[in-house]
Design a protein around this nucleic acid. Structure first.
Length: 845
RNA sequence: GCCGGUGUGGCGAAAUGGCAGACGCAAGGGACUUAAAAUCCCUUUUCGCGAAAGCGGAGUGUGGGUUCGAGUCCCGCCACCGGCACCA
């Protein structure tokens, strides 16, 4: 193939050179050539799952952006940590293994090698000496170690901090552990043969694969993430993340402030119903209570035989209903009356009790006080069954029921009449607490994190079971490796595949190993820590390395991890911080989400649509630099945008123009330095272009506005292409600015130029190690500036004046402008506004 | 329904409250060439007047507002994208 410049020759050459010369190795504090004067900067990509499909152009957006930043900050003299690794445990490898009979370790290794090779063909400046792999025993030893730290910890309510379990003095340690066993209804996916976290179930189907998921009670490992819910919300204030992601996390945690109210059963005062409400100010408006069909009290209430029978049928109907049907908003509400009554503590009124599936067992207390006048759902239900309603908020105008004003005054509520919601709430809560009928509480949508999976290809738990009780292994016994197995298919029962490894399971005479494995999140919860000190044999991260590198200055990845990965990692980080293992409160200081790359048809890339772009093929045709540059030139980093082959060609032409600024073709494919490159001084116009470009590129890189930085370099190149001679100084600066974006081309031209002009060698041997150029503001001003002259905000003419002209002089010159005569005819000039150096606006009427 | 985001040429996009459309793609025209590729040059928001240089009007989803001046700020509406969704 005939290329416009010989990238296929020099790109691999420089990639090899960078690695062999350790050009991008970041020094840790304890290393010999560590420079304490350098500022540290930790720039991190979300590490990939090395799938069999290989790298995707979508991966490259974020990776290129962080590579540009890393290279830029290195040129600015900073110590940049920019690592890469593999999130390699997980379901796809296991399922592929089941299909082909190949061990997941083998396919994982192949995929990793392929990913690494592909990344290297893009010239990314990762410090490959720090590569980590979550499936490496030297890595997951520490994943297991961290699990044990959390197992041996609890949240002390007094300090609201994670503390070693030794500070707990109660008598049921297992009831407070941060990692605990729970026998709970979980999301069981028969097709995958595993349970899933709530977060991994979407619309009643598995997030991976879309298989049906059912609820069934199972013994599982859980993390008490809810204990840190408040801090996970509050500390979002401390990080520079997109507001949308913060909001997503807040919504997910779903804190709501309200109160619990205790209602007594009239027929049997020893039985109580506790409800949760955020509108306790409307307590007087309650006209009935509703229990969720799963509510345990239903089994204890004394009901008439007919109702009992009715209830049984109703509850069965609910339990077989799929989640989807039950949560269908369009359907009319169902429910049955129980024929028993409860007493409203605030006024002693008796209220009928109902069961209805619009009340969810897993939120609040599984029971609600219905205020149909001021709650849409209660209203709908009350209409359906002709239940009474009582208005307890005064509406100024004729508001249709139900309405839920918080600023309206309370009425029909003796204790709080005339008060707005906030005050009324406070008074009623106080009253409830004083009389023992309730209290103010916080509720969260977030539930504890289900942490075990019935899989083979994941980290085993460092736990054994003895006489029905769990016990932690000692730290010396880590890592616990998965057993060698031929057959790791799901057992078809709830038992995990590890149960088949009989020898491995038997830990001792009377102890057996935990059969569950950890979910894929485990390894990704802390990899950013290991990168700081990847070869440490004594600790998961060394104290000095931790103090130096933490936390991550910039974290770039897709929005798909907005909730789960980021929330889980923050949770581990906070726990480890509380336990004294870390010095920062939050793991990721700044977060940026890159947009998706769509197919050229504007649709999401997918095999079935046939619009997937293979980066290797584009590299083959246009080179790595062109791919990198195009990915950045397409538009703002955060935007989704469609791929365009002709767009790559445009960038490729731009790079070829740079090449020809310095090189001349002697014969087909034979290039040598162009004699147009000389040490001539820059004209003042060129001087301005050069320095304006330095300024723009510098500021744009720091603002992550790579597309406009590239546009400015294009302006630069266009200008020098049309000049007869190419001054060395201009070319050198261009190569320095270009180096983070198109490092191979910059490196190649730099070394070619350095042969003829040794002055370059004194600046740096490699372009990627040259210092970042500094612009001089004084070159940016011209002696003359052009003013736009407006009449009433419309541009009518332009005016070139000395840049030193005073406001008065500018005004005088503008008013004297003949082109304005027709626009000022018969008008009175009221005001003249002057923006120095830019614009004059004459206001006339 | 609620929360968040985005609306600018044929397309990707630029514009500290100050000349809308930089830069690139696509399209059209031209130069070079026996020819093509490559390269280089020109045109390209839209409407009206003009042979032309040019002149004038409109224009950043939509309707208002603030301002000497609004793509940018404020209020209402519409469309699309993402998230949550009977969360009491």
């Amino acid at each position: 193939m005939n290329h416009s410049y010989p990238f296929s020759e020099f790109e691999p050459r420089w990639q090899g050179h960078w690695i062999s010369s350790r050009a991008f190795h970041a020094r840790n504090p304890e290393e010999v050539d560590f420079d304490p004067k350098k500022k540290k900067r930790y720039i991190l990509d979300m590490f990939p799952y090395p799938s069999g499909d290989g790298l995707h152009v979508g991966h490259l957006v974020g990776y290129t952006a962080t590579d540009i930043l890393s290279r830029y900050y290195r040129m600015r003299g900073e110590n940049v940590l920019h690592p890469m690794g593999w999130d390699a445990f997980g379901l796809p490898a296991e399922q592929y293994a089941i299909k082909t009979g190949q061990h997941p370790r083998v396919t994982t290794e192949q995929n990793i090698n392929n990913f690494r090779r592909q990344l290297q063909t893009l010239g990314f400046s990762y410090d490959w000496e720090r590569e980590v792999n979550t499936t490496d025993p030297d890595y997951f030893r520490w994943t297991q170690w961290i699990f044990l730290q959390l197992y041996h910890a609890w949240v002390n309510p007094a300090s609201n901090k994670v503390e070693p379990i030794s500070t707990y003095h109660g008598d049921d340690v297992d009831a407070v552990r941060l990692a605990y066993i729970s026998e709970m209804p979980v999301n069981w996916c028969p097709a995958l043969g595993t349970v899933l976290a709530n977060e991994e179930v979407v619309d009643g189907k598995s997030d991976v694969g879309g298989f049906p998921v059912e609820r069934r009670p199972m013994r599982q490992w859980m993390f008490r993430i809810t204990a840190l819910a408040d801090r996970l919300i509050e500390d979002l204030e401390k990080v520079a993340w997109p507001e949308s992601i913060k909001q997503l996390q807040r919504n997910w945690i779903g804190r709501s402030e309200g109160a619990e109210v205790i209602f007594t059963i009239k027929e049997n005062p020893s039985q109580k119903i506790t409800v949760f409400t955020t509108r306790v100010d409307t307590l007087y408006g309650t006209t009935y209570l509703v229990l969720a069909p799963e509510h345990p009290l239903l089994d204890q209430l004394q009901l008439s035989p007919a109702i009992k029978e009715n209830l049984k049928t109703y509850r069965e109907g609910c339990s077989t209903k799929k989640d989807l049907e039950r949560t269908d908003l369009a359907k009319t509400k169902t429910g049955i009356p129980l024929g028993v009554e409860a007493i409203n503590p605030i006024n002693g009124e008796t209220l009928p009790i109902w069961v209805a599936d619009y009340v969810l067992m897993h939120y609040g207390t599984g029971a609600v006080m219905a205020v149909p006048a001021h709650d849409e759902r209660d209203y709908e239900f009350a209409q359906q069954f002709q239940l009474p309603l009582r208005v307890v908020i005064e509406a100024d105008s004729e508001l249709a029921l139900p309405f839920s004003l918080t600023e309206g005054k309370a009425i029909n509520s003796p204790l709080v009449n005339g008060l707005a919601a906030a005050e009324a709430k406070a008074i009623i809560i106080k009253w409830l607490e004083a009389h023992g009928w309730g209290r103010g509480v916080m509720q969260y949508k977030l539930r504890d994190w289900l942490f075990s999976r019935q899989r083979y290809w994941g980290e085993p738990f460092p736990i054994v079971w003895e006489e029905g009780k769990h016990r932690a292994l000692s730290l010396e016994e880590l890592p616990v490796r998965p057993p060698e197995m031929e057959d790791f298919r799901p057992t078809g029962t709830a038992e995990p595949p590890l149960a088949k490894a009989k020898e491995w399971v038997r830990y001792s005479e009377n102890a057996t190993r935990e059969l569950n494995t950890m979910p894929q999140w485990a390894g990704s919860c802390w990899y950013y820590l290991r990168f700081c000190d990847p070869h440490n044999r004594q600790h998961f991260i060394g104290k000095e390395a931790e103090a130096y590198w933490q936390n991550v200055d910039l974290y770039v990845g897709g929005t798909e991890h907005a909730v789960l990965h980021l929330l889980y990692a923050r949770f581990w980080h906070k726990a480890l911080f509380d336990l004294g293992c870390l010095t920062t409160v939050e793991p990721f200081q700044r977060l940026v989400n890159q947009g998706m790359i769509l197919g050229s048809d504007g649709q999401k890339m997918s095999k079935s649509r046939g619009n997937v772009v293979n980066p290797s093929e584009v590299i083959k045709q246009y080179g790595a630099d062109a791919v990198r540059l195009f990915e950045m030139f397409m538009g703002p980093l955060e935007h989704s945008k469609p791929w365009s082959t002709t767009g790559v060609e445009g960038i490729y032409r731009f790079l070829a123009r740079i090449w020809r600024l310095a090189m001349k073709e002697q014969g087909p494919g034979e290039w040598s330095l162009s004699e147009n490159v000389t040490e001539t001084p820059l004209t003042s116009a060129q001087q301005k272009t050069v320095h304006a470009t330095i300024k723009k590129v510098t500021k744009d890189i720091e603002a992550l506005s790579f597309n406009t930085a590239i546009a400015q370099m294009m302006i630069f190149v266009n200008e020098f292409t049309s000049a007869k001679l190419c001054p060395l100084e201009a070319l050198q600066i261009l190569l320095q600015l270009l180096s983070p974006f198109a490092p191979h081309l910059a490196e190649e031209l730099w070394s070619s130029l350095a042969e003829k002009f040794p002055s370059l060698k004194t600046v740096a041997v490699l372009a990627s190690q040259a210092p970042w150029p500094i612009w001089q503001e004084e070159y940016l001003c011209f002696e003359e500036v052009t003013y736009a002259v407006q009449v009433n905000g419309k541009v009518r003419t332009r005016l070139t004046l000395p840049s030193t002209a005073s406001k008065e002089a500018v005004e005088k010159a503008a008013l004297a402008e003949p082109a304005l005569l027709s626009h000022l005819e018969n008008k009175k000039i009221e005001k003249v506004i002057i923006v120095p150096g830019r614009l004059v606006n004459i206001v006339a009427s």
